[in-house]
């Protein structure tokens, strides 16, 4: 069972996308059912039944989309992401439905859609949602955007910019799914990181610790990523990294 971090209201603590996106819906449901109070659990069960019974479009605000909107006040904000992912999954939301929910959603609903993508969309059709989120400056959306779906489908250029944006905005790179594999031997990413480090250093500003970590992963002589690359945050001695 994957451990989900307890909810904290600080923005940084809301970045639990990788975990939510990686947890199979069945496990997510079991996890959530253990933690919800009786009323919230009853509400969720009914919402999931409704979603399963009425998938697809039922007008501009179908019942299951209403449930999606109110998940925060029914389950508590700390459980809303998981509840929304489960409702989307139960509704078997396709790319069109996910796109509608995202476009009409609050930031919290958009985050849930991004988490749900790897569970629901096998191909790259939903990439415009990821790209939309990556254009924002909301770190909760950015963290949700760099999950397994982006790792699987985002092209190299957009992916490199996503990694760089994490460094710029303070999203921990541990949120970037499959970082080791995608960064491995990526010379262009290494160049971008080196330039960024140089720019920071020239300005007399500290280089983010995460930059060195990613830079180390780009080293083609580094340990191959599978099954697990052995690069922790101590990889601060990157080839171009300069502590300031």
């Amino acid at each position: 069972m994957t451990h989900l971090p307890a909810h904290q209201a600080t923005p940084a603590a809301d970045t639990q996308g990788t975990t939510l996106a990686r947890t199979p819906p069945h496990d997510l449901h079991a996890h959530l059912a253990d933690r919800l109070g009786e009323a919230a659990r009853g509400w969720l069960d009914q919402a999931l039944d409704e979603a399963a019974a009425h998938p697809g479009a039922h007008g501009p605000i179908s019942v299951w989309e209403l449930r999606l909107a109110e998940a925060g006040r029914r389950c508590g904000p700390e459980h809303a992401d998981a509840a929304r992912i489960l409702i989307l999954h139960a509704a078997r939301a396709d790319t069109d439905a996910l796109t509608r929910v995202y476009a009409q959603g609050t930031a919290a609903e958009r985050r849930a859609v991004l988490h749900a993508l790897p569970h629901l969309v096998p191909g790259p059709q939903a990439l415009p949602l990821v790209e939309d989120a990556l254009r924002t400056n909301d770190t909760r959306l950015l963290a949700a955007a760099v999950g397994p779906y982006a790792a699987r489908h985002l092209d190299a250029h957009h992916w490199r910019h996503a990694v760089l944006k994490c460094l710029f905005t303070g999203v921990p790179v541990t949120e970037v799914a499959d970082l080791e594999r995608r960064a491995h031997a990526d010379r262009e990413l290494a160049r971008m990181l080196g330039d960024y480090a140089a720019e920071r250093t020239a300005a007399g500003r500290p280089v983010p610790e995460d930059l060195h970590r990613v830079l180390t992963l780009t080293d083609p002589t580094a340990t191959p990523p599978a099954p697990a690359a052995d690069h922790g945050p101590n990889g601060a001695e990157g080839p171009h990294g300069k502590e300031s």
Binding site: T10, P11, T106, A107, N137, D138, T139, R140
Partner: peptide, 14 residues
């Protein structure tokens, strides 16, 4: 409206 439900709460939370 989207901004009042997205970006502005994020800014406030900072």
């Amino acid at each position: 409206f989207d901004s009042l439900l997205g970006w502005e709460p994020f800014r406030a939370a900072q």
